[in-house]
Design a protein around this nucleic acid. Structure first.
Lengths: 131, 131
DNA sequence: CGGTATCCGTTGCGATACTG
DNA sequence: CAGTATCGCAACGGATACCG
């Protein structure tokens, strides 16, 4: 059991202060960045999409659907659209018949994938409660 | 726009592989660690609880309720219980009348708070889409 | 003070069917 | 192939009332 010293505590307080200062203008407009950025980018299906695209680099719609066990067309479409709107995923359409659409991570999405997987692995290594 | 070189890609692939290997046993039991750890620890109310406890160190139930704008008793209770079950928050009961209960972060919760706030601040600094 | 119990509207999301 | 449209169930979560 590590102890939390005063210096660590002050560092955390400063970071939290920074967060509340930078989010305040959005809160005033009724927009919750916490919810819009974290919660919606880190839900279950988003995570699987990001990890799949992080691993395979480029995937088509039905390849993603096969890889992500249990996802419906609707949720995959909704999730990918949201990730595209957040500039996490890039969508490339080839105008051919039958249609072909390729999904991949943006550079922002690639950075995000790294941060998320680090957090996830830390969780798996350190959490005592997995249920 | 940074480019993603081959070395970075391979590093990410390895991390993702590690994640899928370490989660596989749970998946087989029908438990989804991704959902149970990330999604439930990082929802909107959990975040506010963690950040408040990170900032003020120790808070009582109704102090938390005042600080977290809009939360109901029910959701605060549910959220705190879940965080306690995940060993993120510690609950200390003083058997007195009227009752007094103090909440604080565990050392695991403190580490988590740091990781979450770093991710949140990175989001605020780098994301183009806040809605 | 620190919750729990209940009700109930809203949202999420899976299944199915359909389309350019 | 890559989605959209519609439906309907189930879970989430807010409001209110109540309790040790």
């Amino acid at each position: 059991m590590k102890t939390i010293d005063e210096r660590q505590q002050v560092m955390l307080e400063n970071k939290i202060q920074k967060y509340f200062i930078s989010t305040a203008p959005y809160i005033d407009q009724g927009i919750c960045p916490t919810k819009n950025l974290l919660a919606t980018s880190l839900d279950k299906w988003s995570l699987f999409c990001i990890l799949n695209l992080g691993y395979f680099k480029v995937l088509r719609f039905n390849q993603l659907k096969k890889n992500i066990d249990g996802i419906s067309s609707r949720m995959l479409a909704v999730t990918l659209q949201r990730l595209e709107n957040h500039d996490i995923v890039a969508r490339k359409v080839f105008s051919s018949v039958p249609p072909k659409v390729e999904y991949s991570l943006t550079s922002f999405g690639f950075e995000l994938a790294n941060k998320i997987i680090d957090l996830s692995n830390w969780f798996m290594d350190n959490s005592k409660a997995l249920q």
